[in-house]
Design a protein around this nucleic acid. Structure first.
Lengths: 135, 135, 135, 135
DNA sequence: GTGGTCTAGACCACC
DNA sequence: GTGGTCTAGACCACG
């Protein structure tokens, strides 16, 4: 599991953590039942206040991603992966729809947006060619 | 010119104003040289704090959209329209590229994203059929 | 609105606050749109740390009971009353079902439980006779 | 004697043990004078920390349910059954009274509560028909 | 003035 | 050792 924090970023630290944990769960870096670092450990690792970690973990709990097992720390919930993946997909589709609408409302031509869209896909494929499953 | 504010919305009011002024400039509702309401007037119209308007106007000035003419209030800058349009287009293209990359990185298929993309365009066209330029 | 805190009570302070606010909303002491005390004010009134109030208010927000209006504090959400009432009713019915099941499983006779149940109702009516709507 | 622990449950493990021992005593699965597993044995059986068992046994001792016979381990006290049964009954009656009061105070109608009460009894009878005393 | 975030350090219950 | 709660005090963005 890899978590990196940018404290000078606008988004709150606890939210950065929440996102990255969810992301790790979604892509399989964290699997169901696996233990995540304790509040204090992660706080030390990231050099931030334990309270901030605590907050992030609590949010993850109420989102059903983490479960606490009495006195033995936090574990990834069983069905977490599925829900994280679907949640992420939904968010992205919503964002895509929103930006497209914005563009059209701003007077951009569909063809223009489509070109931009396809270019983004081509750019991605060039960086990570099809067939590569190193992720 | 039409500006509507939603104070219970997450985005700061001053930013809502900035965006809508730029939008009005971009689509021609506000043309170069035209005067915009004074800070106090706009504050009254929108029933919000004058400080907030002030802040928005300052940002618009530093973006080159507004200019103050000594003692005669704020006016839309000459080249404002062109810069607003191009800026808006650039922002949207960037956002589009970003969300596409996010989606691919999250493991969504290009075809899936493309479908979502086209659906958004169809949805927009249905609401505002082609040929309509009432906006 | 009346909120009283018992810090020596086992249940966390922030939860006591959440419950009492919901309770006040459910019974009409707090109506939709009404403003609740600011974080700092309530903290002073109850002589507890603002952070604790903050936490309670945040939970109430995510439960849809409170809404923050930019820079003008927290307000009771429009549909809050209905949801609070129904939520409270559901919780109580669940608790009732649970304690009855516990009792039966412990070998108590239905008649015995029924007597206890009716006694509780009689006791309540004696304290607050029917027709009294002073609450 | 049957004890099952759910470590991911909110209630402390030692309390789960206390309750289940009392329950077993109340329904006759554990009779006066009978020996209970040693701290170490029970800890192994339940795969939990011996300290936790220790704590549970201490509580049971101070409640008069268990007695230590020097060098021969923990035994169920002579009058334990009677006290467990009556204690359990009292607790349940109190809980019932409390939840009824809560409900009435929340504005629920007595008839409504009564219906919920009877439904719980019917539900229980259906699962464990009258005449069955296999528990 | 408002809420939102973060830090530092403390205490507690549980295992 | 674990998480959960609370306090005290600071800083920031917004209006």
């Amino acid at each position: 599991m890899l978590i990196s924090i940018d404290p000078s970023n606008g988004t709150p630290i606890y939210e950065q953590i929440v996102r990255q944990v969810k992301y790790n769960v979604a892509n399989g870096s964290l699997v169901g039942g696996q233990q995540v670092p304790s509040v204090r450990d992660l706080a030390k690792m990231l050099a931030i206040n334990p309270n901030t970690i605590q907050r992030a973990y609590q949010l993850l709990q109420s989102d059903g991603v983490l479960e606490t097992v009495r006195g033995r720390g936090q574990h990834v919930a069983a069905g977490a992966k599925r829900s994280c993946v679907s949640q992420r997909a939904r968010v992205i589709h919503d964002e895509l729809a929103m930006v497209v609408e914005e563009g059209l409302q701003a007077g951009l031509e569909p063809a223009e947006l489509r070109e931009s869209f396809e270019a983004a896909i081509r750019r991605f494929n060039r960086r990570k060619p099809p067939g590569d499953s190193s992720a």
